[in-house]
Write a protein that binds this DNA or RNA. Structure first.
Lengths: 127, 127
DNA sequence: CAGTATCCCGCATGATACTG
DNA sequence: CAGTATCATGCGGGATACTG
């Protein structure tokens, strides 16, 4: 059975395109942060805890390319660059936030499941 | 401003725990596939196009540990192992599906944004 | 059938240094 | 300030072979 027969018009791969973005920790954090409003590079760098300059740049380029945010550079000195979510980016934030909310709500259940699993397992795998 | 002041009780990291799962291509595909009902290992292997035996095993272990699915082994020969979503797994499927639906709905916009971006960019980067 | 056990490679990412 | 360039590396994940 070919994939095209199981899923209409390769939507599976299509969805993965966006979903794998959500899998990218930095992308999610950047988009979420920008959900609070327009920000400049250095502000983002400070707001997104732990991100390196390189990864911030890379992430921003990717999100810009996919149309989730717009980049505005001012030809001043020192330079200033603002980043802001597009309508698309803002819309993406909805299902992503829903997922985040689910995560927050159900986190305890996952933690408990892990604890239980590890308890069951560690008896076979001493040390 | 400390992170704890911006986000209540480190929920940011908490959410990432689940979200990064969604970032894992195989996890999403396995959970989605199991959304159709209980399946055995070999069925999953065939259903999830392109997954290696190793990754299927690894993915299933992770999902089991987090409480998204249950594993049932039959002491027959040849052995038979069934996998099935738990209530938690089924619930997770909702926000994940919503995201997938969003992806399918808006994929064209992303593609177009990329086309436009690449058009703008390639003029500076010949070849 | 349902896994484990190895080997191995490529890329994502971090650290660091330099620049318009 | 907002990047780019370069180097180093850890490990995700594929291929393959073996096993209860």
């Amino acid at each position: 059975m070919k994939p095209s027969e199981r899923h209409p018009a390769g939507q599976c791969q299509v969805a993965n395109d966006v979903i794998s973005l959500v899998g990218d920790k930095w992308s999610v954090l950047v988009i979420s942060t920008l959900g609070q409003g327009r920000m400049r590079f250095s502000e983002l760098k400070r707001a997104v805890e732990g991100i390196s300059q390189k990864m911030l740049t890379t992430t921003l380029r990717g999100l810009e390319r996919d149309g989730y945010l717009i980049r505005t550079a001012f030809a001043t000195v020192p330079p200033r660059v603002d980043y802001e979510l597009t309508a698309l980016g803002t819309e993406l934030l909805k299902p992503v936030s829903a997922l985040g909310q689910w995560a927050i709500t159900n986190h305890a259940r996952v933690i408990e499941a892990r604890r239980a699993y590890d308890g069951r397992t560690s008896s076979n795998q001493p040390q």
